[in-house]
Design a protein around this nucleic acid. Structure first.
Lengths: 235, 235
DNA sequence: GCTCGTCCTTGACGCGCGTCAAGCCGACGT
DNA sequence: ACGTCGGCTTGACGCGCGTCAAGGACGAGC
């Protein structure tokens, strides 16, 4: 961690939706006040229950916002990438972190104090609207997490694959090629389950002719089926 | 629904934390612009997926924010009472309702357009901070819902009873008397389960000597056990 | 080539919980 | 007091999924 201004940090802050209407000068100030941390993969960045007086913005890499259950499994609530902020709510509400955060890949984080943000808010009040919009959006995302948890594992998997088909699907003569985006063990954790069950769920989709598994990517034949299964409407 | 200003409406709006630093004049304006609806119990107030251009404030009664799964069960995400706003995120983010809302009791609702709120924000920018705080808090609440969903049914029940013990527990010579606050069928739904399973979970707590069931209230002998079970740490 | 390690898959089993189907109890009307 | 009806409880059963344990499959290193 150090406090010299860095271009990558300023760029990440500029890209952050929280204060997208802020002036470049204000961003520069924010960047100057930030402390920068390089975190190895798996490094814990914020712990559930800890008081939070600052929040992080992802400069590079990916971080996971998650909750760990008593038996050691994790539920991933959000994954944040370049230019996204995490642990912001606790800093804004002045409370404790409602969830833990760790680095899903090697990551660089810019830490900003809640105070700095409130100062920014005071000098440039128009950013409030962006902030409110962003918080609302996050609330909507979390709502969808809750809905996802109501699905069974095949449903959650289908929902994930469907979203991923839209995002990174690549048409080929065989079908839509979709990379899983992470090792299967990690995907299982993201879906709130274990590798064994994920494997069976994939096997079932394969047997039903929806897709074909090829190592760490799948060839999707029937995107509609994924959409159907992932929206919670029976088989 | 009608548009004449009402004292109960103004009072409810005044009590609303979203704009707690707003001036009385601004509240009066808001109240005048509101349309008031009296809803019977069970009445649907907002449907998931619908575009939302307005949000509601509870003037009397209680409303439930919930998601209905494909098989017809409901997950309750929040319960809003006097002076609390619902369906606000969609109106603020300009999207669709991420969840449905219905009246848990007969309720009176003041509907306010998202536009009115933004006007208020423009004329009295200091309310942004309250709004941000409220949204953050709601985000934290939802996070706790996610965590609750990771518990098994006895755990969820214990968590609920523990919170309720703190909120409405009444010391008696026998133990802490805690009313369930709603019929058991409704409680079961709030916990994301069915009456049968709730009944068994209560029976189990009774057998373990943690509490005793008396109709629609319970006598708690061991509050610590409730806290333990509800935090996700084994039996 | 072999060996080792890592990641994934498959099978067997147990547990939690939702479902179906009876009972039970207390509240109410006549 | 009796019947009836709705809310609650209890038992039996099936299914989904987590766990344990035992194989594959594949690449890395010698």
């Amino acid at each position: 961690m150090k406090a010299t201004p860095r271009n990558d940090v300023r760029a990440a802050l500029r890209a952050c939706r929280l204060w997208r209407t802020a002036s470049d000068d204000a961003i520069a100030l924010l960047a100057a006040s930030a402390s920068v941390q390089d975190a190895a993969r798996g490094r814990l960045l914020a712990a559930e229950g800890e008081p939070a007086e600052r929040f992080g913005v992802v400069v590079s890499g990916r971080v996971r916002v998650f909750h760990m259950t008593a038996d050691g499994r994790t539920i991933v609530m959000e994954t944040m990438e370049y230019g996204e902020a995490f642990a912001a709510v606790a800093a804004l509400a002045g409370g404790r972190n409602p969830a833990s955060v760790d680095a899903a890949t090697p990551a660089t984080i810019a830490w900003i104090s809640g105070e700095s943000l409130f100062e920014l808010l005071a000098t440039e009040p128009q950013i409030a609207r962006g902030l409110i919009g962003d918080l609302s959006e996050r609330l909507i995302n979390l709502t969808s997490v809750v809905q996802t948890l109501a699905l069974d594992v095949p449903g959650r998997l289908a929902r994930y694959l469907f979203q991923r088909s839209l995002a990174v699907g690549e048409a080929t003569p065989d079908g839509l090629r979709v990379s899983l985006g992470m090792p299967k063990a990690e995907l299982a954790a993201s879906l709130g389950t274990v590798p064994e069950t994920l494997s069976r769920a994939l096997g079932r989709l394969r047997d039903d002719g929806v897709l074909e598994v090829r190592g760490s990517e799948v060839i999707v034949f029937d995107v509609g089926a994924l959409a159907r299964l992932g929206s919670g409407y029976g088989e």
